[in-house]
Design a protein around this nucleic acid. Sequence first.
DNA 1: AATGGGATTGACCATAGCGGTCAAGAGTTA
DNA 2: TAACTCTTGACCGCTATGGTCAATCCCATT
Lengths: 208, 208
Amino acid sequence: MFEKFFSIDSEKQERIIGAAVKEFALKGYEKASTNVIVKEAGIAKGLLFHYFNNKKDLYLFLYDRFSDILIAEFYGKIDWEETDLLRKLRQVTLLKFELMKKHPALFDFLRVAYEEKAADIRPSLEERNQGMTAEAYGCLFEHIDPSLFKEGIDMMAAVNMTVWTMEGLGQTLQVKMKDVSVEEIDQAAVLKEMDVYLELLRFAMYKA
Amino acid sequence: MFEKFFSIDSEKQERIIGAAVKEFALKGYEKASTNVIVKEAGIAKGLLFHYFNNKKDLYLFLYDRFSDILIAEFYGKIDWEETDLLRKLRQVTLLKFELMKKHPALFDFLRVAYEEKAADIRPSLEERNQGMTAEAYGCLFEHIDPSLFKEGIDMMAAVNMTVWTMEGLGQTLQVKMKDVSVEEIDQAAVLKEMDVYLELLRFAMYKA
DNA sequence: AATGGGATTGACCATAGCGGTCAAGAGTTA
DNA sequence: TAACTCTTGACCGCTATGGTCAATCCCATT
């Protein structure tokens, strides 16, 4: 499909990918302009369409590539044997932060893609997400030891509350860090704050 | 500023406001089309600009009006004497659901406005929000009795976690209810689910 | 009936940007 | 030189926008 693109020098490949991901992440599919992309990438308009047929194919190419990268890294780094749900969620959150730091643009792209409403692209995205969330939940609960919880605690509620709290924390951090360089956030401080919440949750939900 | 608009028959006023809020909520400021608005409202293009100078003024007119309505209703209905933080947050959440049910379009408009990125409008919106969140937090903590909490619990963390949990719950409900009529959601069931979480939080953070 | 004046109309305008094309030029190899 | 591919960017047709304004309508006052 994209042989022409892959056969060019890789520094140029990355310039193009970088420009495209930035533009799509910033404006979403429809409002993103191929004109802006080619200008930023320093190539001629025609070339972009020479490599990737059309805007839609370009977008889906990026989407697939980034999903693959993220999933591979995630699956490679997670500890599958963890049986403590809260510890597992802690690990997942930490890993998520790590990946955000490593691939910020990529994360932005996928976040925007997740909320994409453009009719051209919607069906293709949904098709790609079939079952992915189900699978994610499945692998989260694998090997989990329910006996750690107090009697009568709804494990689903426990997970939800934890996830929501982690997400809320992540969002406020993102706001706080808006001006600070993405590279050097005080990881130790973040970790400490996160653990305050997890400790609270542990106390609420686990046996003494 | 808008005398001409206010002097027309009120059924027409509402038709216009309804059409405009719907369009803005659906597409955001920039992509919203005045053509669509006038068609939906059943008036001529020129008339809209006769009433409200231009698109921007129309938008800000709606924004101001809706903020005022919501704030007034909110302040009127809340129990200012509540000293139990969790109970107060419960009350606030319930009130929020109630207002969403009563004014769904209005809520959508303000939610979209909150994330509005259009440069034309951004500064005006930010100016309007100056201090509003600060004030909201202030009135939340008024009369709160900190002695209910266990020693050493960070009250800020407690509030955050509760708010994030309520928001998370709200969002999943919104997804679940997407197809169901907005009018008749099972309020009792929602309340029950909410209380599960609040009970968990109370147990984690309050003295026995 | 006639007049005056505000309310209302909708065809029209300038502008802008889009995705996509393609004939021509540049670079490379034989 | 010739044949080839890679690359260029001016150009196209199209869609849609926010905003205007001369013309028309409507109705109260004379």
